[in-house]
Design a protein around this nucleic acid. Structure first.
Length: 488
DNA sequence: ATGTGC
């Protein structure tokens, strides 16, 4: 291996500059592909199909500049998790596999004015109460039990529905990506089957890597931005990570099947059937976009209801109103979405379907889509690490529009499969160790889930965030450490 | 991620 190339078992990456690697265009690739990573992270990324999948995505019509893999990238369905693909919205296409099965899987951070000392001694009561009151695990049971009419309203209006029904305050909408609502949602494009799956899961965490975590802020790296975000050391915050449950999963599946049937021509030209895409301008592209936006609204309501219930739990445990505890939403970011955005491409303004799959929007200071409260410092970005590592708050960096279509990483990224994790770890032992060594209280529906999510199955979130910060796509603002964690 | 295969 020379200084300027990295050999990944048959795929050679050329070093463009520090932390920027390029797979040159060849064969039917329409653009080069880029990986943003240190050599240490590349050593992990090359171990699965991520790089081949990344190359494959450059075959998608309308791919612009290059396909990009974030420092936390790993293999996914067709398109890598941690992938960003900007596809021309007029002449390109839209691909459900490049959005992900869990449409608008995402994360929000709610602040409090409590300190770690206020909470110490109450951890067990708090974790028990959160676990008892917030539905989690596979299958049904949500905070709101409803008919399909309510599902339709949620799909159409997102967090506006929650506001009108007493589950949100105006301020919650103002501190959410897209204000908790995609205008282009079309509930009529979501199948009855998807709605039936969703109707009893409104306000539920789900399983897998989804969780609710009470954390304490351990470091504030940037005074000006930390103060604009209202973050200080020892403060208690709450992180909620979940998505669109069965409704989003069913929607992704429905459209993959439709595309396979109706757009065989395009499919046959792609190197992987899992990249199935609907050509821009086709009826199916419009239908999927309407359905995906509706599922995005559903996921935002899901996180909103869980946050609402969390406020109620804190009120009972700490015997004060949530307003008194200043339990305000810092921000909510989507991890699995596509959005029509206008970007500058070689001096030309172009409308693109920006696919962010396991990637976070990271708009810099001054961008009109950054909420007014944060416009001067940049959009908040929340990057969860494992339940033993804690998380980061970043802000959209100056270089994100040029390097990544305004995106950065979304998490630590898995190191091993769920099956492998269950062979390596025993859930109960992981819980005991976290409590004894780090005073982290974990409560889960299933020990298997704890084993699958053991801290050791994740990459080093510090290293992922370091690369984002060094590249100036998302800058470090604060770090948190877990106190209580509930999961499915 | 997911009424734990597509």
């Amino acid at each position: 291996m020379s200084n300027s190339t990295f050999d990944a078992d048959g795929i050679t990456l050329e070093k463009v500059r520090e932390y920027v690697w390029e797979i040159p265009q060849e064969g039917d690739m329409r653009t080069p592909a880029r990986v943003l990573a240190s050599e240490a992270l590349l050593e992990e990324i090359k171990e699965d199909k991520t790089l081949q999948q990344l190359k494959n995505t450059t075959h998608l019509p309308g791919i612009t500049k290059h396909a990009i893999c974030m420092p936390d990238g790993h293999q996914g369905y067709g398109f890598p998790v941690g992938g960003v693909g900007a596809l021309d919205a007029e002449n390109g296409c839209i691909s459900p596999g490049a959005v992900g099965y869990d449409i608008n899987c995402g994360v929000r951070m709610m602040k409090t004015n409590l300190t770690y000392d206020d909470l110490k001694g109450n951890e067990q009561e708090l974790v028990d109460s959160l676990f008892a009151n917030i539905p989690s695990g596979l299958g049904g049971g949500g905070i709101v039990e409803s008919g399909v009419d309510t599902v339709d309203e949620i799909l159409a209006r997102g967090v506006d529905w929650a506001l009108e029904n007493g589950y949100a305050v105006e301020d919650d909408l103002l501190h959410c990506e897209d204000e908790g609502h995609r205008e282009e949602a079309d509930p009529s494009k979501i199948s009855q089957k998807a709605k039936d799956r969703g109707k009893n899961q409104i306000g539920s965490l789900g399983s897998g890597n989804h969780f609710l975590e009470v954390q304490r802020v351990t470091d504030v790296f940037h005074d000006e931005v930390g103060s604009a975000y209202g973050l200080e050391e020892d403060q208690i915050v709450v992180l909620i990570h979940c998505g669109s449950r069965g409704l989003g999963h069913q929607t992704c599946n429905d459209y993959l099947r439709k595309i396979e049937k109706q757009h065989q021509g395009l499919l046959n030209k792609l190197p992987d059937k899992e990249l199935a895409a609907a050509p821009a301008g086709s009826q199916l592209a419009e239908d999927y976009y309407g359905a995906m936006n509706a599922a995005i609204n559903f996921a935002w309501v899901n996180r909103q209801l869980i946050m609402h219930r969390t406020r109620e739990v804190f009120e009972r445990v700490f015997d004060r109103s949530w307003e008194e505890m200043e339990m305000d939403l810092l921000y909510d970011v989507a991890h699995n979405i596509a959005k029509k955005e206008v970007h500058d491409v070689d001096g030309e303004e172009r409308e693109l379907y920006v696919h962010r799959k396991g990637a976070t929007r990271a708009f810099p200071a001054g961008h009109p889509d950054v909420p007014e409260a944060y416009r001067d410092v940049g959009q908040p970005i929340i990057i969860p690490g494992s339940m033993g590592a804690g998380s980061y708050v970043l802000r959209g960096g100056e270089n994100s529009m040029e390097l990544t279509f305004g995106s950065t990483a979304h998490g630590a990224g898995r190191l091993m499969s769920r099956t492998q994790a269950k062979n390596e770890y025993w859930g109960g032992d992981v819980q005991d160790e976290l409590e004894a060594q780090d005073q982290i209280y974990v409560k889960a529906q299933s020990g298997a889930t704890v084993a699958e999510e053991a801290p050791g199955v994740y990459k080093d979130v510090d290293e992922v965030v370091r690369i984002s910060d060094e590249l100036g796509i998302g800058d470090k603002v604060a770090r948190t450490f877990p106190v209580c964690n509930i999961k499915g």
